[in-house]
C-alpha cells in the first residue's frame, strides 16, 4: 500500500482555481472595506460562500457577520439549517425581518399568501444602512440569469442601493477596487464565475452539509404556473388545484410561495450532479416564479437594490 506524501506536488484543478479566486476576492474586499457583511440565505450558493469565507480567514474568526433577510415565508428546514450552521461554525448571525418593515409601515402587507420577494429589497437596504455596511457579499452567479451575466464582481451601489448597468466601473484584471463614499456600498460576488455544476462538485468535494430540501423527499405539492409548489402555510390550494404527494427536491431555495420543486429521485450529491449534468431546463427557469413576471424581471429588481 502506498500513502500520499504530505508534500507531494499536486497540480491545481478547476475547483481549486475557482476556490482560490473566490478567496482572493473575499480577502480583497475585507481589506479595502470598513464594514463588510455576508448575505446568507441558507441556500447552496450562500453555503458555499460562507464555507469559502471561513477558509479565507482561518484560523482566525470570520472578520464580519452574516445577515439573513427573513421574509417570513421561508422553508422551516432552511431556517433550522441557518441556525445550526451559524452555531456550529461560530459566526455572528444577524436577521433582518420583512415583517418588521411591514410593521413599520415602510412596505404594504401583501397578505399571508402574497409574495414578499420584492419587499425584501427594502429590508435589505435598511439593514445595510442601519448597520453602516459598505460591502455585502452575495452568492450570485453569472450563469443564473442574463442580467447577472452583465454584473461586475464588485458591483457599485449608489446611496439608494441602485445598480446602474449603464455605468459600471471598469474592472480590469483582478484589481478589485472597492472604495466607496459614505452612504454608498458594494455588492461583491466571489462566485461570479461558478456554474451550478461547479457548486455541486465543490459541495461534494468539501463534503458540505445542506438543508434537506435539496434532496429527494416526499411532499404534498400542487401545480401552479407550471411549477410544483409545496403546500403549507404560504401556499394553499385554490379552487381547481389539487394536492398531490410526489417525490421532489428543490433546485434553489427561495420563498416557499415562489420556489418550485422539481420531480427528482436524486437523494445524494452524486445523483444530483448526474441530474444537473443532463438537465434541459435552467435552475431559475425550473423553479423561480419571481423571474417570470417579465423579460427583464431580474434586471428590474437589481436596479432597485435586490441581491
Amino acid at each position: 500500500m502506498t500513502t500520499t506524501p504530505l508534500r507531494a506536488p499536486r497540480t491545481a484543478d478547476h475547483l481549486d482555481l475557482l476556490e482560490s479566486h473566490a478567496i482572493f476576492i473575499l480577502r480583497e474586499v475585507v481589506a479595502e472595506c470598513e464594514r463588510p457583511v455576508l448575505l446568507f440565505s441558507g441556500g447552496k450558493d450562500s453555503a458555499v460562500l460562507l464555507h469559502l469565507a471561513l477558509k479565507a480567514f482561518a484560523p482566525q474568526q470570520l472578520p464580519f457577520p452574516v445577515l439573513h433577510i427573513d421574509t417570513g415565508q421561508n422553508f422551516p428546514e432552511v431556517l433550522r439549517y441557518r441556525d445550526e450552521q451559524a452555531a456550529s461554525l461560530g459566526v455572528k448571525l444577524l436577521v433582518a425581518k420583512v415583517q418588521d418593515s411591514i410593521d413599520q409601515g415602510k412596505v404594504a402587507d401583501p397578505g399571508p399568501m402574497g409574495s414578499r420577494n420584492r419587499l425584501q429589497t427594502v429590508t435589505l437596504l435598511d439593514a445595510i444602512n442601519d448597520n453602516g455596511f459598505d460591502a455585502a457579499f452575495g452568492g450570485a452567479r453569472r450563469d443564473e440569469d442574463k442580467a447577472r451575466a452583465k454584473e461586475r464582481i464588485l458591483s457599485f451601489r449608489d446611496g439608494f442601493g441602485q445598480w446602474d448597468p449603464r455605468r459600471q466601473r471598469p474592472e480590469l484584471w483582478q484589481l478589485y477596487q472597492g472604495k466607496v463614499n459614505p452612504g454608498e456600498h458594494l455588492r461583491a460576488f466571489p462566485l461570479s464565475d461558478w456554474t451550478e455544476l461547479d457548486i455541486w462538485q465543490y459541495i461534494e468535494r468539501e463534503q458540505m452539509e445542506l438543508p434537506e430540501i435539496y434532496f429527494a423527499h416526499e411532499r404534498d405539492v400542487l401545480l401552479r404556473d407550471d411549477m410544483w409548489l409545496a403546500v403549507g402555510p404560504f401556499v394553499e390550494p385554490r379552487p381547481g388545484e389539487t394536492v398531490e404527494r410526489r417525490v421532489v427536491r428543490f433546485r434553489t431555495v427561495g420563498d416557499a410561495n415562489c420556489t418550485g420543486a422539481v420531480d427528482s429521485p436524486a437523494d445524494t450529491i452524486a445523483a444530483i450532479i448526474e441530474e444537473i449534468a443532463i438537465a434541459n431546463v435552467s435552475e431559475r427557469g425550473a423553479t423561480r416564479a419571481d423571474d417570470r413576471f417579465s423579460e427583464t424581471a431580474m434586471e428590474d429588481r437589481k436596479r432597485e437594490g435586490y441581491f
Binding site: 453569472r142 440569469d145 442574463k146 442580467a147 452583465k150 448597468p165 427583464t296
Partner: peptide, 21 residues
C-alpha cells in the same frame, strides 16, 4: 442570447460585457 439588458435589446447594441460559460 448575450444582450440581456433592456436597453441593449431596445437599441440592438451591446452596452456591457456578458459572461457566458
Amino acid at each position: 442570447v448575450t444582450d440581456g439588458l433592456r436597453a441593449e435589446r431596445e437599441q440592438g447594441i451591446t452596452i456591457d460585457v456578458a459572461y457566458r460559460y
